[in-house]
Design a protein around this nucleic acid. Structure first.
Length: 288
DNA sequence: GTCCAGGATCGGA
DNA sequence: TCCGATCATGGA
């Protein structure tokens, strides 16, 4: 990876396996806004970022080097060799070979665990445009103002203070009580979010599932999209469909069977495979 | 009006 | 253990 500073803009070159549109719009994060073609405004880690991709480089506007290195390199997982990841996955797997062709610019983001947890609690029985609206509403109502019209995602304390009615005003629906309970547990220390970092994935998964409204799929999303556990394979309806279609000759393969398949076939890279397959599956829509 | 959305919970077989 | 109904909300 190579980058330079020009004025107040950090310029990333040599980014053949990184596409910001594919990375942001593949359903792993929700607090972004498309401004023009290949130009986005992102809010993450209590920071606001304007970013634009051209054919040969990516521009991080109004960004100092220290913030780029401390925040955005880990957030966008820029130090990983994605060419190697894709080559490993595509070897001996014709499905993956095709899948990485469709969205080969995806990076797995390193998101804030709390924001990720709440985002995916909201995701249940919901669609992506609405998840984005709701997380944005929560930020505007309870989050700290960063600049102009940009609000950070609310902290555990800020959401713990929110009443159920206030959460309902943000259109969280039946998930309001889950969010409230999670916030109160996390804010009081009854649930230690920081401890997840030091726990094995399986233990972290069990811990997350003690929160009401958090099942295996949501827990795995937090493990993959916030804790960097690239071996997990969050299995939603699309992953079920695409796995059953391409890797099983039946429609009733269980999640357990799918996880076993993913572990054997993709190993430590299962999380990347999952995200390539997710985009791939949605291209097929109902044909699965 | 009906169906669906990056699911999880609950009660009843 | 397994299965179906149910959960707010809004767009198609």
């Amino acid at each position: 990876m190579r980058y330079t500073l020009e004025g107040d803009t950090v310029i990333l070159t040599d980014c053949t396996n990184f596409n910001i549109a594919e990375t942001l719009e593949c359903g792993q994060c929700f607090r972004y806004e498309k401004l023009t073609e290949n130009e986005y405004h992102i809010i993450a880690h209590e920071r606001s970022l304007f970013i634009r991709q051209t054919s040969e480089k990516i521009l991080f506007y109004k960004t100092i080097l220290q913030e780029f290195e401390d925040i955005w390199i880990p957030y966008f997982d820029l130090n990983r060799d994605y060419r190697a990841v894709k080559e490993t996955l595509a070897a001996n797997d014709l499905v993956m070979r095709d899948a990485v062709e469709h969205a080969g610019g995806i990076h797995i983001l390193r998101q804030d665990p709390w924001e990720c947890l709440v985002s995916f609690i909201i995701s249940q029985n919901n669609n992506i445009p609405r998840i984005r609206k709701i997380t944005d509403a929560l930020a505007k109502r309870f989050g700290r103002r960063i600049e102009d019209d940009a609000y950070a995602f609310p902290t555990t304390d800020e959401l713990a203070r929110a009443s159920l009615d206030e959460l309902l005003d943000c259109k969280t629906g039946f998930r309001a009580k889950y969010i409230s309970e999670a916030a109160k547990k996390a804010a009081s220390g009854e649930f230690d979010l920081n401890a997840l970092n030091d726990m094995p994935s399986e233990a972290a998964r069990e811990a997350l599932m003690t929160i009401k409204g958090v099942g295996a799929k949501i827990a795995d999303c937090v493990l993959l999209f916030a804790l960097g556990r690239t071996e997990v394979f969050p299995t939603d309806v699309w992953i079920k469909r695409v796995s059953q279609h391409f890797y099983f000759n039946k429609q009733d393969a269980s999640v357990t069977e799918i996880h076993k398949l993913a572990s054997n076939r993709f190993g430590e890279y299962a999380g990347f495979a999952q995200q390539y397959l997710y985009v791939y599956a949605r291209e097929f829509q109902k044909n699965l």
